[in-house]
Amino acid sequence: MPEFEPKIVAFCCRYCAYTAADLAGSMRLQYSPNIRVVEMPCSGTIEHGLILSTFEKGVDGVYIAGCNLGDCHFLKGNVRAIKRVAAVKKILDEIGLGGERLEFFHVPASEGTKFAQVANEMTERIRQLGPSPLNKNAAGNAQKEGGQTA
């Protein structure tokens, strides 16, 4: 059985994490290929609904990456993102998907290594958790269903 390869969406702020991703690339750093990066004008533009609908589409994990506290290009976007992530984590816990599939990370523009490290860390976390029950293509889920019908 092949190892479970999680699909993770990373919403990255243009002014920090997204730039850090570029830097990681030019530094030729190896990082988890499981991450799909979505560029955001600011981590503060993330919304509850967008996170939930991303999970509904079957991704196994989501994270938002923004600037260090005090460094937000729009002053407080990251603070707001952190609060929203906390609120959605609560919803995820309540509905049974689990808040640990969602996280917020600080990734400054100058830290390509931090970007790679976060990507690897989140991939590892989600790998441990196993596929999202909403992920129809995951080997694990298919197997589970197979197990039930067999």
Binding site: E47, H48, G49, L52, S53, F55, E56, I91, E94, I95, G96, L97, P133, L134
Partner: peptide, 18 residues
């Protein structure tokens, strides 16, 4: 509108898991 979408989404996920 936003809260409505979030609630629908959350309950849809919950029901799928169940």
């Amino acid at each position: 509108e936003k809260e409505t979408d979030v609630l629908a989404s959350a309950i849809r996920i919950k029901r799928t898991l169940e």
